[in-house]
Design a protein around this nucleic acid. Structure first.
Lengths: 111, 111
DNA sequence: CTTTATTGCCTAGATTATCTTGGCATTGAG
DNA sequence: CTCAATGCCAAGATAATCTAGGCAATAAAG
């Protein structure tokens, strides 16, 4: 966990974070989670019970595709990569986030 | 609705927005929703089916208290105000939001 | 050699917050 | 007289996350 308790905040943001992670090249599930946590300086934690269902969902929607390969450490791993549709989705979700986050911050955060 | 489609992003943020709204003085439910929408320039929409359950939840948790009164337009309305506990909750959630939003923005948004 | 942590994937069920869609009552405007 | 806006409420659906497990292989530590 990152901060005090539950991260209900992650809701609706995980997909975009995964898509963004994959926009830098293919990665396997475990690697995606580790990358997001590191890139967020542990402010965002990605539980496996959220990650894998999210990956299936996104694959079903045609945003990402997977194939089996071998990880850097020589282990069997499923690598995901973005599709064109996924790239468009990332752009849309990024725009939504920017607008939403700015609005909420303007309300919540003192100047 | 604000942007393209669903606002899954609101998840976990509504409570803080309501608390913040009430930190400026007591308001009734309907007024809270309108204020948040206006303050966010329609980037955030607050459905009544989300609002009232949220208010009950927060009252149950001792963050807010309610009493019946009369609205500016002379109608019967239930006015909510912050408790000391609610004020502390607002501070905590604001901190969480700041940390989370900054981390996500750093990942998602191009420089 | 044995134990433990790490990597890596997966699933079932619970939780919880939001949204959808309804209803009700009053007031003001057209 | 009708319709939009104000104001409250509830039942059920939806959907995403988390909890808590299981499995297997490797590397490090004892």
């Amino acid at each position: 966990m990152a901060e005090t308790d539950t991260n209900a905040l992650l809701h609706g943001t995980l997909d975009a974070l995964i898509l963004k992670t994959l926009s830098g090249g293919a990665r396997h599930g475990y690697g995606i989670a580790r990358w997001i946590e590191e890139a967020s300086e542990e402010a965002v934690s990605v539980e496996e019970g959220s990650l894998y269902p999210a990956l299936y969902r996104m694959e079903r929607r045609g945003w990402i595709e997977a194939e089996w390969g071998t990880s850097e450490l020589g282990r069997k791993a499923k690598f995901y990569h973005l599709t064109a549709k996924g790239r468009r989705q990332l752009a849309a979700e990024t725009r939504q986030w920017a607008r939403f986050a700015q609005a909420v911050s303007k309300i919540l955060l003192p100047i």
